[in-house]
Design a protein around this nucleic acid. Structure first.
Lengths: 185, 185
DNA sequence: GCCAAGTATCTTAGTACTGTGATGTTTGTA
DNA sequence: TACAAACATCACAGTACTAAGATACTTGGC
């Protein structure tokens, strides 16, 4: 699991800061740099986008915790469950990891007996990943609960709001993906 | 850098799959499980939320690449820049890493001469992290460009849409955070 | 038919963390 | 005065990846 939101020493337990008041010896030097309202809007969007994703992800990961698989592995199983066998390259595009990462992840799922590789007739470079019967049973058993966990995690918005958010986020994502990545300065 | 969106072999370069047609020997077995529309809406939201965050993050990380710091380190510098010295515990809450992670990250920033630790008068257990003059200069120099990169990354939405998305995401995030995490089954 | 270029996967080494658990210091409370 | 709880730190094994390169196969042009 990548970052199931830190659980270590004294992580969250809220309000207790009463000592923050005594400002440090050195001046706070909080020379808050002025920013345009347009920048402010964009930065705020980036922050809440990240926070929202983290918050929902925490529920998704909590749901998967204890199943002996990572969220990324879950993503592969889910993709194979809903789409049938996929070329490893297509798995890569779907879950957004490096090519080496796909090899690594599929190796582990194979070791767990959930996935198998199949040769691709017609292109001997390529290979499919496919669920084994055990893998199909496994994902079929846990997916419904998983869907409920997500449903619950996003239930802070009404269905209409969820649809509105989906539309905005889809367009945001598409636009950002289409945009060429920063011209190295 | 954690996952600057894979750059490896044949990652994105679109449509070329013409070999996907010959379905694998084994039956596709695509027993697509029926789902309620409510579930469908929630799952879709989760997917586009993650995709959008990833897409924007790719720009953010591309902007930081080559500066010899990771995005997490950047987050610390930015927090100190905009808020002044912070207790290490507050840094932890801000950037969401483990307690050991804060020590590790601050150590590295100290080694780079960008941050220093200061004792906290009034609580001798606690310590502040604060920018050094070099650190302030560094972040002050790169932050404006960073803000522009974010501005650009989210420019697929109009300002009004950005505000609407911010409102929805803020409420989504708050609700998800407030919700107790899945009851371990 | 030959070969360069392209595509698919795998291998290797490295990185940025995490989690656990222990240690020391300090603080607020009983 | 004791004692639990908070803050930071350290040590260390482990994890989920990444980037870069190697290998194997395929394709398109000549």
């Amino acid at each position: 699991m990548k970052r199931p939101t830190p659980k270590t020493r004294s992580a969250a337990p809220g309000r207790s800061r009463s000592r923050t008041a005594p400002q440090p010896a050195r001046p706070a030097a909080s020379a808050a740099p002025r920013r345009s309202p347009t920048e402010e809007t964009a930065l705020k969007l980036w922050v809440v986008l990240t926070r929202a994703q983290d918050a929902v992800k925490a529920h998704v990961e909590a749901d998967i915790a204890g199943l002996e698989i990572t969220t990324t592995e879950f993503g592969i199983l889910e993709a194979l469950y809903h789409r049938g066998p996929l070329l490893l390259g297509d798995v890569q595009k779907k879950i957004l990891v490096s090519s080496g990462g796909v090899t690594y992840l599929v190796d582990r799922l194979v070791a767990k007996g959930l996935v198998e590789r199949q040769d691709c007739p017609g292109d001997r470079r390529a290979r499919y990943a496919a669920l084994t019967p055990a893998g199909r049973t496994f994902i079929g058993r846990i997916f419904p609960r998983h869907a409920q966990a997500i449903l619950r995690a996003v239930s802070g918005l009404t269905k209409a709001e969820q649809l509105a958010a989906t539309d905005l986020l889809r367009r945001l994502g598409h636009a950002a993906s289409a945009l060429p990545v920063a011209p190295a300065p």
